[in-house]
């Protein structure tokens, strides 16, 4: 455990050095926030759509922004390059678990992401008006959901990065992941707007936990009972992916030894 704590601390200290990567990764998420805020402000100025009012949609988009920013510093690029260069072999000889080590790094970078989220949310609210915070149980569920979001996002990024053991092209995999996550998490548009079958698929996919679940709970669009189920789904996916990722890793290692790095 001690070595992972050390890794968290080391990443936390190094986080500032990666600030440019962070800002770059943040750019796309921030641009999407600005564009969608502008689009919905115009649309919702007249009347609510699908039951969303302007303040609600604004809160929804801010949650989507926060979810998009968290765990973007994790260094999936670094991990990908180490796999592609074969340097990953050096990581294997260290007496620590690869998956936990990467998770520790993701946690270490969180603080700077939280600072950025606070700044952007603060500025947005100052410019466009306040936001209603949900009451007791709703708030507790929201916090639980946001906490689960961290391992969930980490695992989705981690598993997709492991694809580098099979393909040389990390960029393509990353783009595909971003596109799928953007749609199925509800970050681009709330799932309620999608056609029924697509909404249902997305709802039960691991991606819904990345935006839709915490956002709907925050807005109070689901009652606490339903909210509990959604958070339960999030948790189930975290567990499933945690162990599923180990299977992928095992397969990747077999490939590594077959190919000799």
């Amino acid at each position: 455990m001690r070595s992972y704590r050390a890794l968290i601390r080391a990443t936390a200290r190094a986080a500032l050095a990666y600030r440019l990567n962070l800002l770059l990764g943040l750019g796309a998420v921030l641009v999407q926030l600005i564009a969608l805020l502008a689009v919905w402000q115009v649309i919702l100025a007249q009347s609510p759509v699908n039951g969303f009012t302007w303040p609600q949609m604004r809160a929804y988009l801010l949650v989507a922004f926060a979810a998009g920013t968290v765990v973007s510093l994790m260094g999936d690029f670094r991990m990908a390059f180490r796999i592609l260069d074969g340097d990953v072999a050096l990581d294997l000889v260290k007496p620590i678990d690869y998956q936990r080590a990467r998770f520790a790094e993701a946690i270490g970078g969180l603080w700077i992401e939280v600072v950025l989220i606070a700044v952007v949310v603060g500025v947005t609210l100052a410019l466009t008006g306040g936001v209603d915070v949900p009451a007791g149980p709703g708030l507790a569920l929201f916090i639980a959901s946001m906490l689960l979001l961290v391992p969930l996002k980490f695992l989705i990024v981690y598993v997709s990065t492991l694809a580098c053991f099979w393909t040389q092209n990390f960029m393509g995999v990353q783009w595909a992941r971003l596109a799928v996550v953007n749609l199925f998490s509800g970050a681009l548009i709330p799932l309620a707007f999608l056609p029924g079958w697509l909404a249902t698929t997305a709802q039960w996919s691991p991606f819904a936990g990345l935006t839709s679940t915490p956002a709907l709970i925050f807005l109070g669009r689901v009652d606490p009972g339903h909210g509990l189920v959604l958070v339960g789904v999030q948790l189930a996916w975290v567990l499933a992916l945690w162990f599923g990722a180990r299977l992928v890793w095992q397969a990747a290692l077999r490939r590594l030894t077959v190919n000799g790095g």
């Binding site: 393509g172 783009w175 749609l183 681009l188 707007f193």
Partner: peptide, 24 residues
């Protein structure tokens, strides 16, 4: 193979855009 992955990812991104616009 790389080319195919990249091409597929680009197409996927545009498809997501279209789905978004259609839903909106």
């Amino acid at each position: 193979a790389d080319f195919l992955i990249l091409a597929a990812a680009t197409v996927l991104m545009q498809v997501v855009n279209i789905v978004f616009l259609a839903a909106l």
